[in-house]
Amino acid sequence: MILRQINMIQMRWNMDITMVGIDYTDAGLDIRGKFSYTKREQEKTITALRKKEGISGCILLSTCNRTELVLSRTREWEREERSLFCELKGQSVEEYGSYLHLRRGMDAVKDLFALAGGLKSQILGEDQILTQMKDAADFSRKFFGTDKILETLFRMAVTAGKEIKTNINLPSSNRSAPLAAISGLEQKGAAFKGERCLVIGNGAMGKLTAQLLLDRGADVTVTIRRYRSGIVDVPVEAARIDYSKRYEKLRNAAMFFRQRQVQTQQSRRINWMRVRCRRIRFS
């Protein structure tokens, strides 16, 4: 029903959807990193894309596992999207085009809905992607990057993602590495209230870990690295220290959390959460 509605919208407005990007199934972190975006880079890219003939709207999703550019195109669009995707980051399509995936029309719509449901994630059904997609749409809207079709598409995708998580019993009940690690400790009787916890890393996974610990009443400190954007996004309730001082904080921490990335025999890169307990209190 939802896909039929999107198809009717496309026909009515004479637009088409294109989704071009790179994710953990396409390439390792070293290649994906060449196409990652800071917030300031996203702002400049969205502004530039909206000025190009044939582009009615754009949303750019950039996470540790993927970068996706979703475009709504008019009849005037004549560019090849892989070439555009590489050009935006100053990379050569001849060198990196084979790492990229490209989907158009209903294939792009279906892929976006699967993404929102956590069905394209390393950890099946993880919740974080819903927030990331919503944030990406909000950010594009802030700089006038969205149009009616993308607004409708992302709203429906997020709604569908919520329905998937509510109505489908996915194999994994812990839908993110941080939640799996923390829930595993709780199943063993761990209590976090009042415990000093150090989270190493202030990326998306670090932010989620810190918030989960804060929700459980822990005394949380997050290590901070300064990125080119100058933007640091961690829960306001958490204390912050420079990454270089992490060993000093470790002396007094009951436990620390650190995201790791490992290579499997099937050449897939997976994230897992390393937890080291020093003085953990069990109930």
Rank of each mutant, 00 (worst) to 15 (best):
T18I: 08
K207R: 14
R175F: 06
I231T: 12
K51M: 13
E151Y: 09
V70M: 10
G33H: 09
L29K: 11
R73D: 10
N271K: 03
S56V: 10
T159W: 09
T223E: 01
T159F: 10
A27S: 05
R268G: 06
L213K: 02
G33F: 06
E41D: 13
S98I: 10
M106T: 09
R281T: 15
Y243L: 05
R155V: 11
A27N: 02
K193T: 13
I31D: 00
I168M: 09
E81S: 12
V234T: 01
S56I: 10
D127K: 06
N7F: 12
G206N: 07
L49C: 06
L115R: 05
L71R: 00
L250V: 13
T45R: 05
D30V: 11
A137R: 02
F154Q: 05
G90C: 08
F35T: 03
E81W: 07
N7D: 14
K249L: 10
R4H: 15
A254V: 02
G125T: 00
T146L: 10
I149F: 09
I55W: 01
T166H: 14
P235C: 05
S92A: 09
E43T: 14
G105D: 13
R228A: 12
G184T: 14
E81F: 08
W13A: 12
I31H: 03
G105H: 08
Y37L: 13
I22Q: 01
K120G: 04
Y24L: 08
G33K: 09
A253Q: 02
S140D: 06
E53F: 07
K89L: 02
N65W: 00
D26C: 15
M19K: 11
K89T: 10
D30F: 11
L250R: 11
G118S: 03
D135Q: 08
S267Q: 14
R50G: 07
G28I: 07
D215H: 03
N65S: 08
N7G: 12
N174D: 15
L153R: 07
R278D: 09
R50E: 02
L198D: 05
N65K: 06
F35W: 04
L29Q: 13
S229P: 06
L84W: 09
G194Y: 02
K245D: 15
T45Y: 06
Q263F: 12
V222E: 03
L60Q: 01
H101V: 07
L115V: 10
F139G: 06
K207C: 08
